[in-house]
Design a protein around this nucleic acid. Structure first.
Length: 649
RNA sequence: GCCGGCAUAGCUCAGCGGUAGAGCAACUGAUUCGUAAUCAGUAGGUCCACAGUUCGAUUCUGUGUGCCGGCACCA
């Protein structure tokens, strides 16, 4: 006698076991038509699921967010059926829903190409139009394996083989086509709708392991209706316009060329941006108790042998050989061993701890060719690196302090939101469980003190200690690790760093590796995308252009530019023989934040007409006032008389 | 590194088995104009590199390099 409680609190009794479909029908024909799937005591299940006991049920319709994921999951099934109909002999593997869409991995000798899409999409639409019901069937494990083996689906058989012994094996069929699937599903393929599109093909390793076979993956996007799909496609186009590689070229910020793959040629404007951020960072570090150092680029192999890098990281290192001497030097892939060399000079006391040693350290890493991406992933990059030498007891407070500094800097640079991932102990690790407990506990405590939450990234810590990763998102939704903090008791041990404690004995310090931007290259790439090249005045490489309307104003324009320049602004003049319309357009496209227009009127009255990027309004101000205003606005956030400038004591 | 795609003027791109074209930018001249394109003219290319097929290759084939999208990697 199940009594069904609905979201509005009302209760409906039923005489006996009842399917979700029947419950929906009992409530009303409209709901019965709209209900795609139901939430049974909070868990999504098929509409055909039989309810035998008292339960809470909520029906999910196309309007609900939950419907999206189901539509995408089912679209993956429809894709798989379409592919197998069109390309017999193709084996299916897995096909989940993902952010914005779905994918399906197929095993096939000839990988798919985008040219196959029109046919596959047409077939998918045909399958959706057929509207075959999704039917769930449970099968005995061995039967299921035999079933898929008989169909030549070795990957599916393998999947079942590896499922836990006690797990129910369920299959879903849509017409004649059957797939191994945990479910749940919508009612029929018709519920997928037509608002989907195949996006790209890609190779992907079976089970994400590069030792396995390469499968052919097809990515698609799917939405609740055409309007949503169109909006998404439009958003993608917009995102492409923000691409830092596009903007870097258009604004003349940097370039990369074949002779120096993975290394950036910074042009004057790009370097100006770089220097503005670097100068800002240096001020923040200086006022936060860091000591800046500079260490060598080329370091003898012997140090890398001691640090362990020669053994474990060599395939990523650029090695230089000196002709006259039988020596190998390596370009440093990281700064830590060098910083320990400075720490080791002389005798250190516990009174010096925590000792915060910072370097804008240029590192080289031979990254895999396929990993390179614009200036976001390069082979030569400069980290805003620092190492905090401290005691075990200082880890939590130093980490909390670091998170606060990082948050303040991200906020200043236009990233009020960011994600934190907490990577804890991996399988392969050194150190005792007690030591790991302590280090992980300290990072947790630090997050609590700083008032930030994190997502757990289980087992992803370094072999020597746990870490926090601070993640920012680029224009098209890819996540990039920027900031990081890692607890490391290992390297001080290997490179013999020590200090004299309060007790007069020698102790090993803990080393906290930390970076806020991560690397200038990556961070600037994200910064460019964040602002789409329309930087706030203090960051903009060219801050203002003084443009004339008539050549009679040339002299005054120079005067205005000089006044701006004296106020510390990077200003250009545009005295060219063009209409003001053309000048406005040109400098707007170049993302210059302030356009100061001067014509006969301004010259006569000693005023300027200011026009802001993105606005059509103009403001006529006396020259002195314009200078004062822009100067104030161009002041970096940490130097303004606001609360944001307060430093941690 | 692996799978797929791409490589033509500074940029965005078209094109073809008979050694190349547009728009924008650049340059020259005219125009002095009030807030997102003034007009006219000129110049600009080893069609990524190497090898092969061919009477002839920028075009077809192969190899390499680089880039793009994923995957793997990311101390």
């Amino acid at each position: 006698m199940p009594a069904i409680t609905l979201p509005d609190g009302s209760v409906r009794p039923f005489d006996g076991p009842v399917t979700g479909t029947a419950v929906a029908e009992a409530i009303g024909p409209g709901l019965a038509r709209a209900a795609l799937i139901m939430k049974l005591d909070g868990k999504l299940v098929d509409m055909s699921t039989v309810v035998t006991a008292d339960a809470n049920i909520a029906f999910v319709t196309r309007r609900d967010e939950d419907a999206l994921e189901m539509i995408r999951h089912d679209a993956a099934h429809v894709l798989a059926e379409a592919v197998q109909e069109l390309f017999p002999g193709t084996q299916v593997t897995i096909g989940p829903s993902i952010e914005n869409g779905f994918y399906y991995d197929f095993a096939r000798n000839d990988p798919f190409t985008p040219e196959d899409f029109p046919a596959i999409e047409a077939k998918m639409k045909e399958i959706v139009a057929r509207g075959a019901k999704f039917v769930r069937q449970e099968m005995d494990r061995d039967d299921a394996i035999a079933f898929f083996m008989a169909k030549g689906e070795k990957y599916k058989a393998q999947l079942i083989q590896d499922l836990p012994k006690d797990q129910t094996i369920s299959l879903y069929s849509q017409g004649d086509w059957v797939d191994l699937c945990r479910g749940p599903h919508l009612r029929s393929t018709a519920d997928v709708g037509m608002a989907f599109k195949l996006m790209k093909v890609a190779g992907a390793y079976w089970r994400g392991d590069h030792r396995n076979a390469m499968l052919s993956r097809i990515y698609g996007t799917a939405w609740r209706d055409q309007k949503e799909l169109d909006a998404y496609l439009h958003q993608l186009e917009e995102a492409e316009r923000r691409d830092h590689r596009r903007i870097g070229k258009d604004m003349g910020l940097f370039h990369i060329q074949e002779e120096a793959v993975g290394s950036v040629f910074w042009h004057p404007k790009g370097w100006k941006l770089y220097r503005t951020v670097e100068t800002y960072m240096r001020r923040r570090l200086d006022s936060n108790g860091y000591q800046e150092v500079k260490t060598p680029q080329l370091v003898d192999r012997s140090l890398w042998e001691k640090s362990g890098h020669w053994e474990n990281y060599r395939q990523n290192m650029f090695v230089a050989q000196v002709e006259d001497e039988n020596k190998f030097l390596a370009l440093k892939p990281m700064n830590c061993p060098c910083h320990i060399q400075i720490f080791r000079q002389g005798m250190r006391s516990y009174r010096e701890l925590p000792l915060r040693m910072a370097e804008f350290g240029c590192c080289h890493r031979y990254e895999p060719s396929g990993a390179l991406h614009g200036i976001m992933r390069v082979r030569q990059f400069t980290q805003d690196d620092a190492h905090i030498f401290c005691t075990e007891d200082q880890i939590a407070s130093e980490t909390a302090r670091f998170i606060e500094l990082l948050s303040s800097i991200y906020r200043d640079l236009g990233f009020p939101e960011f994600r934190i991932k907490f990577s804890d102990r991996p399988e392969a690790r050194i150190g005792s469980d007690a030591e790991w407990d302590k280090a992980e506990g300290a990072l947790r405590e630090a997050c609590a003190i700083a008032g930030v939450s994190f997502e757990l990234n289980p087992g992803e810590g370094a072999f020597y200690g746990p870490k926090l990763e601070f993640v920012l998102r680029d224009a098209i939704g890819r996540d990039w690790q920027c900031g990081t903090l890692q607890v490391d008791p290992n390297l001080p041990e290997r490179l013999d760093a020590e200090y004299v404690g309060e007790d007069g004995a020698r102790h090993r310090p803990i080393m906290l590796h930390r970076a806020i931007l991560g690397s200038f290259e990556r961070f600037l790439g994200i910064l460019i995308e964040q602002y789409a090249g329309r930087f706030p005045l203090w960051l903009a490489p060219v801050q203002a252009v003084v443009a004339t309307i008539v050549s009679d104003a040339d002299g005054y324009a120079e005067e205005v530019a000089t006044a701006f320049r004296r106020a510390g602004l990077d200003v250009r003049t545009d005295l060219s023989n063009q209409k003001i319309n053309a000048k406005v357009r040109e400098h707007s496209l170049a993302h210059v934040p302030v356009l100061a227009v001067v014509g006969r009127n301004e010259a006569a009255n000693r005023t300027v007409a200011l026009r802001r990027l993105g606005s059509q309004a103009q403001e006529i101000l006396p020259l002195a006032e314009a200078v004062a205003r822009l100067k104030a606005e161009a002041t970096p956030p940490d130097l303004r008389d606001a609360e944001g400038a307060t430093e941690i004591a």
